[in-house]
Write a protein that binds this DNA or RNA. Sequence first.
DNA 1: CTTAGCACTCTCTATGGTCAAGTGCTAATA
DNA 2: TATTAGCACTTGACCATAGAGAGTGCTAAG
Lengths: 347, 347
Amino acid sequence: MVNVSKMLNERSRKILCAVVQDYINFPDPVGSRTVARKYSLGISPATIRNIMADLEEMGFLKQPHSSAGRIPTDMGYRFYVDILISESGYIDRELIQDLYNRLEDLKDNIDMLFSETTKTISTLSHYLGVAMSPKPDIFTIKKVKLFQYGHDAVVITLFTEKGLIKNKLVSLDLELSQKDLNRIAGYINSEFAGYTIYEIRRKILNEMAKEKMMWDKLITKAMKICEEAFFSLQCELFISGLSGVLELPDFADLQKIKELSRAIEDKHTIIKLLDKLSELDGVQIIIGSENSIEEMKDFSVIVSACKDENRTVGTVGIVGPTRMNYPKAISIVHTAARFISEILTER
Amino acid sequence: MVNVSKMLNERSRKILCAVVQDYINFPDPVGSRTVARKYSLGISPATIRNIMADLEEMGFLKQPHSSAGRIPTDMGYRFYVDILISESGYIDRELIQDLYNRLEDLKDNIDMLFSETTKTISTLSHYLGVAMSPKPDIFTIKKVKLFQYGHDAVVITLFTEKGLIKNKLVSLDLELSQKDLNRIAGYINSEFAGYTIYEIRRKILNEMAKEKMMWDKLITKAMKICEEAFFSLQCELFISGLSGVLELPDFADLQKIKELSRAIEDKHTIIKLLDKLSELDGVQIIIGSENSIEEMKDFSVIVSACKDENRTVGTVGIVGPTRMNYPKAISIVHTAARFISEILTER
DNA sequence: CTTAGCACTCTCTATGGTCAAGTGCTAATA
DNA sequence: TATTAGCACTTGACCATAGAGAGTGCTAAG
C-alpha cells in the first residue's frame, strides 16, 4: 500500500472521498456543485473543479462524457478503501449485531452452515454472497471404518475431529472379507489417526516411493483405498443473491449481467480465486481491474478466509459492482468469517 | 387433450404450425407473405391473412401491434406441441446420439450424475438445464451401522440397495455403549432392511402410536435415531446454463431476466413443481401461463421423471422461453431421463 | 371461396431543437 | 498566489416530427 498522504494533500483527499461516497450512495456522476453543497469543505465549486481535474489527470476519477460529473476509477475506489481501512472507525455496530443474530440460528445446522450463511450475506448486503466450504484435505482424521459393499467394493467412512463425516464407495478388483477389512482399517487408524488428509496423502506417496517392495498385500490395499477415497474429496461453492443484484442500477445493461452470470457459472475459476485469497489473513479486497479473472474486471470482490488457528476452514465473501458500499460489505464479510471460524473451532 | 382436428381444418392447422415453426426459428412476428413464400401451401397471402385473423380470434395467435405479423399465444404453442407429439416423427436421431455419447462418460461417476447431466442438457439445448436427485425417501435400506461419536452423539450410516450411502450425526441426550449401539443396529436391520425409508418412517409413526408404552428403552432409542436420521434427508436441485440463456433474443429485456433469476433462485418452489410433475409418466410440457408459478408464466418447462419400475429416481428438465425449440427440447429431456433411469436401474 | 389492390396503421429510425447539468477558461479578487 | 465568479461551450437526455417499411383489413373482382 502506497503512503497516500504523500500523493495528495488533505483537501484533495477529502474531495476524492466525497466523490466516491456520493457516487456510492447515488449512482450518478458527481459534479463540483454537488460536492460543494453536500460536503461542507468551505471551498467553491470552481476550486473543486480545478482539483477534480487534477484528480482526473492522476487517474483517480474519470468522466463518462465531457460535460458530466466525475465518477471514481478503480484506482479511486482503491484509494478510498485504503483510507477507509486505515481509519477503521467505519464499522456499523448495528449491522454487525443484526448479522450476528441471523447467523446465530445456523449454529446447530452445520450441514447447511455455508449455504445459509451465503443467503444471509446476500440479503443483508444486496450483493452476491459467496462461500466455500473447506477442502476436506485440512481436516484431521479421527478414525476410518471399512465395510464390504457387494462383493467387489468397499465403503470407507471417514470420521474427522470436527464432526465432518464422509463416505466413499471404492471399487476394488478383488474380494476382501470383512475380517481383512477390519485389519486394514486397524492399520490405517494406527498409522493415520491424528493426521490431516493432506498429510496422509503426502505420507502415502512417500511410503509408496520409499519401500515399494516390502509391503504385504494388505497394506498395499489399504493405501489404494485411502488414496482413492481421499483424492475425490472436494470443497463446495455456494453463491446466492443474483436476483437481488439485478435490481441494482449498475446492472441496468445486459452486457454486465451476461458477464456476471458467466463469471459465477464458471465455478472452477471462482474456487481457484477464493483458494488463492484464502491463504492470506484478514479481509481481502479486489477492485475491478485488479482482478486477474477477465469476466470479473467490472466487479469487486471482498473475501475473508475463516481460520481455525492457521488452517483455513472455509471462505466467505461478497461479489458486487465496483460501485459498492465498501464499509458495509467489508463489515459483513469480516463478521461472517469470524462467526464461521468460531463455530468450526468450538467443536 | 382436445381432439384438435375437430377445431381446425387441415389448412388452418398447417398455417398455425407454419407460424409457430417460423417464429421459433426467427424471433420476429410472422406475416402472411412470409408464410406464403416459405411454406408452399399453394394459397395467396390474402387468404392466409383471413385464416390468420380467424386463428387470432380463436386465441391461437396474437399481434404485438396492429400492423405487425403474428406470434403464437401459449395456446398456439400448446396446439403445435400436441400435434407434434401425436406425430412423434419429430425426433432428431443425430441429436439423441450426440447426447447419449456425452452422457455415456458420466456412467462411472454417480455422485455427479445429476450435476453433470444438467450441464450437458443446457449446453446441448441452449436453455436452462435442471435436474433433481431423488428424495432419498424412495431408496430401499440394505442395512445401517451405528457408531459412537464423542460421548453423546451417534453416527448412523445408511446403506441403500442402489449404492447410495448417507451419514447422519445424531445428538442424543444420553450415553450409549458401542455394544448397545450394535444391538440397536441389529434391531433396526432386522425390522427395516428391505423397506424404503418412506415406508420405514410410516412404520415408525404407526408403531409409536400403537404400542407406545410397551417398548423397552433400547427400541425407543432406535426409533429416535432413525426418525432423526431419516427426516433430514433431502433431494438436491441442479440448475445450469443461465449465461447461455441470456444470449437468446427472448431475454433482451431486463424484466424477463429478473423474472427468470427470481424463479430459479427460489429452489423450494421449483422442487415442489418438479415433484408434482414427477408423479406423471413420460415427458411433461408446461407452456407459459399453464404454469401455476407466477414467476414462470413467461417460460416453458419440459420435464420428465426418471423411473425405476414405478419409483421416481430423479427428474430432469429444461426451462426456456415459450418460444422454445420444442421438438429438440422434448427429445433431449426424454433421452436424458431414459439414460438416468437406465443407470440407476442397472445397479 | 379466393385473390389482387389499396388505404391504413403502427413501429422504427433519423433528424433537429431545446433543456439542464457540468465543465474549462478567463479575469477579477482577497 | 490561491481562490472565486462569470460565462461560453459541450454533451447527453428528452421530445416532437417525418419518412420508410412491413403488414394488415377491407373491398371488389375473378
